[in-house]
Simulated assay, not measured.
Amino acid sequence: MSFLIVIPARYASQRYPGKPLAMLRGASGAEKSLIRRSWEAAQAVPGSPRVVVATDDDRIRAAAEGFGAEVVMTSSEARNGTERCAEAVKRLGGGFDVVVNLQGDAPLTPAWFVSELVEAMRAEPSAEIATPVLRCDGAALNAFLADRKAGRVGGTTAVFGHDRSALYFSKEVIPFTSQAYAAESATPVFHHVGVYAYRPDALAAYPAWPVGPLETLEGLEQLRFLEQGRRVLCVEVEGRGRAFWELNNPEDIPRIERMLAQMGVE
């Protein structure tokens, strides 16, 4: 099964302008941009996928080409990463069985998350989109709750049915639980990891669908699939001892740098 990895990146983020070019210090103290670290995460995925950075900004294009990435320029009208991926695939001419959206703010994404998504799409032909979910331990859940209490937009959570079809995604912590959990204990909350695998037909159709009220309220692009009645497959993945966090706010940089240091990532 051939697959393409697209890393959508835009400069004009409302919450964090210029985020793709934010510098992150690795284990040795060397700094690399967020977009470069995300590209290196994509390069680590087995199967020799083609990897492209999709952007509408010349500053990001120059930075990405500077470290050797293939860049596809897209319009500034793309409303989210999925629309940008759809435009990039159209410009490339298609020809892929699966398109993976590895968002440019998730440099800690393990390679096996992507591999397991592609395998899930192979195993379940009815799924039009698949995305990984990671069960939170008590420490991760407490970090989510602390972000919300402080008014920060932290990670996204997901709930899904017995067949692994997504029921909902939210920037709030769902499902509600009043129980206290030890740092290393399992919780009923699943962290939605910002990676998507799409069937090309579903991806091509996406930009023409109207933006619904849930997507508008939550600011979550995957909700457009649910509002259209499309099946989104949640693939539970294991962290295998790897720390995972997305860069949503400037305050996340020290947290991610600590994780890079702990993993020995240069």
Rank of each mutant, 00 (worst) to 15 (best):
D57I: 03
L21G: 14
P132A: 04
L134K: 00
V153W: 03
E87V: 06
R59N: 14
L34M: 12
Y198S: 10
S13H: 12
L233Q: 11
G239R: 05
E215A: 11
S75P: 07
V237L: 01
V235S: 04
A140L: 13
T55D: 12
Y181Q: 09
S33R: 03
R230T: 09
V195I: 13
T216C: 03
N249D: 12
A30V: 03
P49Q: 06
I256W: 12
F144Y: 13
A205M: 05
R255H: 12
V99F: 13
E40S: 07
G94V: 06
Y168Q: 12
P125H: 05
L108A: 09
E238S: 15
E215Q: 12
N101F: 07
D137F: 04
K171W: 05
A139D: 13
S178F: 10
A150F: 07
D252K: 02
G26S: 11
R258E: 15
A208C: 02
T157G: 08
T131F: 05
D201I: 01
F169L: 14
R91M: 13
K90D: 15
K171Q: 11
L108E: 11
E218M: 09
S38Q: 06
A120L: 08
Y11T: 06
N142E: 14
E70D: 15
G29L: 07
A208I: 01
A186H: 04
I129Q: 10
V114W: 00
T74E: 14
F3P: 00
C234K: 04
K149V: 04
S185I: 00
R240C: 05
G94W: 10
Q262D: 14
Q262A: 15
W39D: 11
R231W: 04
E87F: 06
A150K: 12
H162T: 09
V114D: 07
P188K: 07
A182G: 15
E77S: 15
V133D: 11
G68Q: 01
D57G: 04
T82Q: 09
L214P: 00
L117Y: 06
L117T: 01
V211G: 13
A9D: 11
L117G: 02
S33A: 13
G26P: 05
N101A: 10
G81R: 00
G29E: 11
E218W: 00
R231G: 08
A182H: 10
P207A: 07
P125D: 10
Y168H: 12
A139C: 08
A127V: 01
V52I: 02
H191C: 11
Y181D: 14
V98R: 07
R231A: 09
R50A: 13
H162M: 12
A27S: 14
A27V: 00
A140S: 09
R50Q: 12
M121K: 03
W209R: 13
V195E: 08
G93K: 00
E238F: 00
K32L: 14
Y198H: 15
A27T: 00
Y168L: 10
